[in-house]
Design a protein around this nucleic acid. Structure first.
Length: 550
RNA sequence: UGCCGAAUGGUGUAAUGGCAGCACAAGCGACUCUGACUCGCUUAGUCUAGGUUCGACCCCUAGUUCGGCAACCA
């Protein structure tokens, strides 16, 4: 599979900038806050940030936007790096921290105060709300707005020195309390937080707000194109105001629409809730759209990157069908997964005319389209398991599998004909009795008769018992957030995880956690993190593309 | 009611004043030792109303609908 590079409005802007010699080397950045796990929405941003840098031979910085110690944690830092690497991107030497710039940012804050562009405000959060006003009405100037520069400088030093409790003061940019853009109504740029920072420890007790910090980070690092999601559009004037007042290099902020996918939720807050309320089993639950969840589920980095390429990048807030993600995953997995046989809902099949003491080692291809995957040996005996749904009483002619008197091929082995069936007292089939044609091992019947169906099987004497986790979409509603009257958790799919005990062919004994397979005719599976050779555990990544079975 | 932004088949996207194309989904068929894969065919679209133009998805005007913004979060 090829990952063709995409072109969209952002690349057009970059190409124009390059052509006009506005810039030499493009520098982007991916700026996660280490307060949660990355999800497929971040994958879109990562693909954009790193992929764009790659495409134009520039570079992409990984920068932790760690300006809020109360929300952040070291564990997320590691997880985020692991996820980005797994997706196939590398920041090389370019690892940065917003917190590394804290001293410099404080200097810039002082500069703003000295220029009369910032002041210390003692209004409580509640009180300031009143002063700020509402969208349709201008705000009022807070009392502290007219403090002298020296007073502001002294107060800011006190804040910085830890003389005041959390919330006592904040530093505000002095812009315009009547601006139609709320973000320009004297936004807070520094707040007091007596908290230990995971990276800077206790060296600071004031922390910059996003709007103040982010543009300075971008500027210091010489970012040429600062790509972010649409909700920051209204922040752009502030981004530009701060850098202009400070007379600093001004990167170009460009906004794009975030990725939304049907039948799931994408916000960190919602994902956190699902984890904390135990609707799922941790951040890497295979039902979650987190990178770690998708990895555990068996999705591939290639598939995720292909999805990002395919959905492109626009300013239209779209809702991508999960089927498209699944198509990308199947596409990659079909090419890259070795095949194996597994029976999820077994019934027995006995070949009456096959010697009871015989075992044949059949050599079966690991991939139908790619010989380089080699072959494996699969033991064949008189008795095997087949899938319950591969037999039907009084089956119509279109049904290609077992029914009384119909000849069916056992994949890679012989053609067998069902002679009679055994059922339990409830009428459920327990055993198929068959006869086989010894002339059909690995070949078509020599007399030219057509055998239409092929069914997978596992020798009962050699089968490995395994736990299989069958995953389905997490929500029953395409957009679980759309109903304003109901919490999104009302739409959780009660059957999103089902377990079953399966019979696996013995070659699967040597699988390692994370190994991916196609269980033929059933779906794509991968060995779970919990998988061991004594407790084999596989996750169903996806079923095969749904075909109408008769 | 203020500000910012967006509208192209069911979905996602291309066409930058010159044939509305591609992919996913759906339907039909072919092939097949996986009812997979692959291949062929089909269905289906420019938010509305005006205007400019030989010609408009594209430019202009007005409207409609949808999304974002009122955290000491990012």
């Amino acid at each position: 599979m090829t990952e063709e590079s995409s072109t969209h409005f952002i690349h057009e802007i970059i190409e124009n900038d390059l052509a006009a010699n506005k810039i030499e080397t493009i520098i982007t950045r991916f700026p996660p806050e280490p307060n949660g796990y990355l999800h497929i929405g971040h994958a879109k941003a990562i693909h954009l940030d790193f992929g764009t840098a790659q495409k134009y031979a520039g570079r992409c910085h990984l920068r932790f936007d760690d300006t809020n110690p109360e929300a952040e944690d070291e564990q997320y830092v590691h997880a985020i790096q692991e996820d980005i690497r797994w997706l196939g991107y590398d920041w090389g030497e370019n690892l940065y921290w917003a917190s590394s710039y804290f001293n410099q940012m404080e200097t810039y804050a002082r500069q703003l105060i000295e220029q009369g562009n910032a002041y210390v405000c003692d209004l409580t959060q509640e009180a300031f709300k009143t002063y700020r006003g509402i969208p349709t009405q201008p705000g009022q100037e807070p009392p502290g707005r007219h403090r002298t520069i020296q007073e502001n400088l002294d107060l800011f030093d006190q804040m910085r020195n830890g003389d005041h409790p959390n919330g006592a003061y904040v530093l505000r940019a002095k812009i315009d309390m009547t601006s139609p853009n709320l973000h320009l109504r004297d936004p807070a740029i520094y707040r007091i937080k007596h908290a230990t920072h995971h990276h800077t420890g206790d060296s600071h007790c004031i922390y910059p707000m996003y709007d103040f910090a982010h543009c300075i980070e971008d500027s210091i690092e010489g970012i040429t194109h600062s790509l972010c999601t649409l909700e920051f559009e209204v922040h752009r004037p502030l981004y530009e105001w701060i850098l202009t007042q400070l007379n600093l290099y001004r990167p170009q902020q460009i906004e794009f629409a975030r990725l939304n996918i049907t039948y799931t939720v994408m916000s960190k807050r919602k994902l956190l809730q699902l984890v904390q309320e135990n609707h799922v089993n941790g951040w890497d639950d295979p039902r979650l759209p987190t990178i770690s969840g998708m990895r555990r589920r068996g999705f591939t980095p290639t598939a995720i990157r292909n999805l990002c390429t395919q959905v492109g990048c626009t300013k239209f807030e779209s809702l991508t069908e999960i089927e498209r993600l699944e198509a990308c995953v199947r596409d990659d997995l079909n090419e890259t997964s070795p095949r194996a046989m597994a029976i999820l809902d077994p019934i027995k099949l006995i070949i009456e005319n096959y010697p009871a003491d015989q075992t044949e080692q059949l050599e079966i291809a690991n991939h139908p389209q790619n010989e380089s995957y080699g072959t494996r040996t699969v033991p064949f005996t008189r008795e095997c398991y087949i899938e319950r749904e591969d037999y039907m009483d009084d089956a119509p002619n279109k049904f290609k599998r077992f029914t009384l008197g119909r000849e069916v091929r056992l994949r890679g082995a012989y053609c067998v004909t069902c002679t009679h069936v055994e059922k339990d007292e409830k009428g459920n089939v327990t055993t198929l009795h068959t006869t086989y044609d010894p002339e059909t091992r690995g070949v078509n019947p020599p007399d030219g008769r057509k055998v239409r169906g092929t069914v997978h099987w596992v020798s009962t004497a050699h089968a490995i018992d395994a736990e299989i986790r069958l995953y389905d979409r997490l929500f029953t509603n395409e957009n679980p957030l759309a109903d304003k009257d109901k919490p999104f958790t009302d739409f959780l799919n009660p059957d999103s995880l089902q377990r079953c005990q399966a019979k696996l062919e013995p070659s699967l004994q040597t699988a390692n956690p994370g190994d991916r397979f196609q269980f033929e005719r059933v779906g794509y599976f991968c060995a779970d993190l919990d998988h061991t050779s004594t407790t084999p555990t596989f996750n169903r990544t996806l079923t095969l593309r749904a075909a109408k079975k008769i």
